[in-house]
């Protein structure tokens, strides 16, 4: 839950500029134009800095990064592996 809220706030502040009306846990960032291709880098930088992790190249795929719930799943797995 904590992951979800933190990532959600980051997305709302940095990509939606405060407007959370269209964002659900299952909204696709790419399809809905919320985070574009280069915005993914900002998202990754946020995750690496906030959770002190390194997102490996092969983890940087839409299946991990394109929705709030996929990011949460990814973080849960990543941080439990540590």
């Amino acid at each position: 839950m904590a992951y979800l809220e933190a990532v959600r706030s980051f997305i709302i502040e940095n990509f939606l500029f405060g407007d959370d009306a269209q964002l659900t846990e299952d909204t696709s960032f790419l399809e809905d134009g919320i985070v574009d291709s280069t915005g993914i880098l900002e998202l990754v930088a946020f995750l690496e800095e906030t959770y002190d992790i390194t997102v490996e190249d092969d983890e940087l795929i839409p299946e991990n990064m394109d929705r709030l719930n996929s990011i949460v799943r990814y973080l849960e797995k990543k941080l439990s592996d540590v």
């Binding site: 790419l30 291709s37 880098l41 190249d57 940087l60 795929i61 839409p62």
Partner: peptide
């Protein structure tokens, strides 16, 4: 690192 996202 961006390749897959960009392809999407």
């Amino acid at each position: 690192r961006l390749q897959r996202s960009l392809h999407s």
